[in-house]
Design a protein around this nucleic acid. Structure first.
Lengths: 228, 228
DNA sequence: TACTTAACAATTATATGATAAATCATAATT
DNA sequence: AATTATGATTTATCATATAATTGTTAAGTA
């Protein structure tokens, strides 16, 4: 379980912070206290503190001690931070906000993929399509297959920021599925839908690709709104 | 200049990594080497390494040493990482990709702002509008005023991820301006344009707000494409 | 041969103790 | 009252030692 103490403490504290166990502004025990509390050395503690400060959760200065940063400074696009939030205080509100980001990004990514995808990337998308088909025959995990399909599109967009978001989207999708309780919330389950998206991208039909993805996400948002 | 050695080394190494000075896969000196190279202690070195690994740039494991992660694992939405990239190898391609992200986010943020902004947030946007007017009279920095206006809209969207992106957008805008050499690349300079956006948001006209912002970014993208 | 196991080496991970530097609060001084 | 010392607190840094992890190699075994 415990790979190393620094990582362990980083995650423990990270979760505790996003859970709100330490008040914003000035609410963390000093290094010395953390040492004895978690029974590890000061070097390990300091390294965990550095990690958390690199993720924007805290800052530490002499005399002032370790302070929890306001949420606006947290790096929500860090998969660790996002994971801690999803784990500690998941909510439909957060899911909605997350889906709004998807709504901003994914249709555009599909459009760009239709315009820029290399033959190799199109093959990857086609492979992902087959995996979805197999998953519906029970040969593979359905969620994994859907996420993979989405990933390949993001990669094919050629935009490094979108590619970076694959990890972000993946992390959150695995949680959101627990809320909507069906894959519909993640993506249309219909194979023909994915086929259409693939065809549009392959044929360079940017507008169709964009609209298809956009429509699914509008449905997903409506579903979330209805449960809010 | 050098507030503390850990931060200093973090930035030095971070820049060097994104600059490609260390090959991907396996290309960093060991801790021991970094110590003597930069003439600082091992603990400071380790803390810098932890920070960089928290940002996804590197990973370190026993025997294997410190390895540079593939770019896909870098946290591009971390303002430090983004800053290092923009500083070390700025390019029109990156600016284009960045503007595509803006195109995905900002029109949607404007739409959400029109739907959800609180009266206080609307006041903030109005204040920002006045700052823009003053900036064109030479009373304030024009870029600052434009960025501030944008920030207020992102905040008014009520979406935490969009709010988080303010820092991201700000960091990049200050660089992109150097390329396009005019504020047009950042946002329409016409005051009446900003006034229109503000009015749309104030009156809850989501579609107009969205379209206005969208159109400006389409122009910006076209401008970048033309110079590519 | 192919596969497991054991010993070894290299490197990070952790621990410990000591000193330095920065900052806040307070007291002294002008 | 304003400024300047002083002290206390906490992080920042350093130095060194030991442990734990992992890749490599070699030996042993079926």
């Amino acid at each position: 379980m415990s790979q190393n103490l620094t990582q362990q403490l980083t995650h423990t504290l990270g979760e505790a912070i996003v859970k709100g166990e330490y008040p914003i502004g000035k609410g963390m025990p000093s290094e010395a206290v953390l040492c004895v509390q978690y029974e590890i050395s000061r070097s390990a503690t300091r390294e965990a503190v550095k990690m958390l400060s690199a993720k924007g959760l805290i800052s530490s200065r002499p005399k002032q001690g370790i302070t929890v940063n306001p949420e606006s400074q947290w790096n929500l696009f860090d998969t660790d931070v996002l994971g801690w939030i999803l784990k500690s205080k998941p909510s439909l509100h957060l899911l909605k906000e997350f889906t709004q980001v998807r709504f901003g990004i994914e249709p555009l990514a599909a459009k760009l993929a239709a315009q820029n995808a290399t033959p190799e990337q199109i093959n990857h998308i086609e492979d992902a399509l087959h995996r979805i088909a197999q998953s519906q025959a029970g040969l593979e995990d359905e969620l994994d297959a859907h996420i993979n399909f989405l990933n390949m599109i993001l990669v094919a967009s050629g935009n490094r920021f979108f590619i970076q978001l694959t990890q972000f989207v993946n992390a959150a999708l695995r949680v959101s599925i627990r809320y909507t309780n069906n894959v519909k919330g993640v993506s249309n389950t219909d194979v023909t839908f994915h086929l259409k998206v693939f065809e549009a991208i392959k044929q360079g039909d940017a507008n169709t690709a964009q609209t298809l993805v956009s429509d699914v996400l509008i449905d997903a948002l409506a579903l979330i709104e209805s449960r809010l």
